[in-house]
Design a protein around this nucleic acid. Structure first.
Lengths: 191, 191
DNA sequence: ACATTTGCCTAACAAACGTTAGTTTGTGTT
DNA sequence: AACACAAACTAACGTTTGTTAGGCAAATGT
């Protein structure tokens, strides 16, 4: 990926995050770069190509993160805290991409779509595994594990809807607050 | 609203929820009803009209729900449990509309968009008020209240992404599990 | 019985869409 | 000086888009 391509991609993502992929035209993207629509095709093969690159680039980051954590031999609580911290870090440091990744992946088609869903499920499975470990260790409440996983992911992902880089909470602080909140719902009471 | 209009709206919503508002054409909607695209305009003034009706209809339901709960003099925990139960009930019993309401409201334009955001904020404020009451009563942990509110709403709203009417959990059970989870993150430890 | 309304139709519009073809321009290489 | 390449351009393509105009048949109201 050339420098210029990365630059264009970034600018495209800034536009896409505002109205969403489907409601944004190739001309909108071109305008933000002060270039002609046709010129984009020197860098990308199609509009969907831009979406594909964005979604799979993010998916790869999450994939790497969860795989790394799963190889570390910490206990479930530590692993979950780490996963949440990493997740928040990825979301907030690529906010434009993250928003597109979370909202617009449904506009992928064919093989791209099914591959994406597969990757998504695989990440979800990684989180689920951590929670399962916590239950096996006797430290987490036995609960519907799919339910717990989805609740964790939903609250983490929702961050992109309100996160403000100039807000009073930095990503690490957000991750810690979120971890505390989530873990108090999971961890067995030490009464 | 005539019976026929309601019928068409329902069919339209079933189509819209699949590809999203922006990626769905008027012709797609018409096809699902086995009628001509132009015929839809006997019932709706525009494509956006369908989105508007859907979003504001849902907004009204949430508005009514939170207003009613806020007039009842229960304690914060009970109120929050009630709010969550009502919220889940509304989402799951109008799943198509709910998905559109949550995903596609951004495609509203002009005054509709700003009015919608206003209504959304007002609902959020209702939830926040309950949590604030819980803190004032000394029963909820002091926490960043905006943060807590958004975390509650995110996990509740995410339900539409995985809820299955034929699944093993019914809406009431989901609401209870979710309430337990959320409240364990909010309630002060009784050590 | 006649008049009105309702619900859909056919036909077509102008605008916007994603994309292609072919060309020019600028920059560094042989 | 000649060439190669990347990155942009102009112009246009065939489609699809949301929407309008006008008409027709069946149901409804008087």
């Amino acid at each position: 990926m050339t420098e210029r391509k990365r630059q264009i991609l970034q600018s495209a993502q800034a536009v896409l995050k505002m109205k969403g992929y489907a409601a944004t035209s190739v001309r909108d993207i071109a305008k933000s770069l002060e270039m002609e629509p046709a010129s984009l095709y020197s860098h990308f093969s199609s509009k969907e190509d831009i979406l594909r690159l964005t979604c799979f680039d993010m998916a790869k980051k999450f994939d790497r993160s969860i795989q790394e954590i799963n190889t570390l031999y910490f206990d479930a609580e530590q692993q979950l805290r780490m996963a949440i911290r990493e997740h928040v870090q990825i979301l907030t440091s690529h906010l434009d991409s993250a928003i597109i990744f979370l909202r617009d992946w449904r506009n992928l088609t064919g093989e791209s779509l099914s591959k994406f869903i597969e990757k998504r499920n695989s990440y979800e499975k990684g989180i689920r595994k951590i929670i399962q470990t916590g239950i096996d260790e006797g430290r987490f409440n036995e609960s519907d594990i799919k339910f717990a996983t989805l609740t964790v992911l939903s609250s983490v992902n929702w961050i992109v809807e309100w996160y403000n880089p100039e807000g009073k909470l930095n990503p690490t602080q957000i991750a810690e607050k979120l971890s505390n909140f989530i873990l108090s719902g999971l961890i067995k009471n030490k009464l």
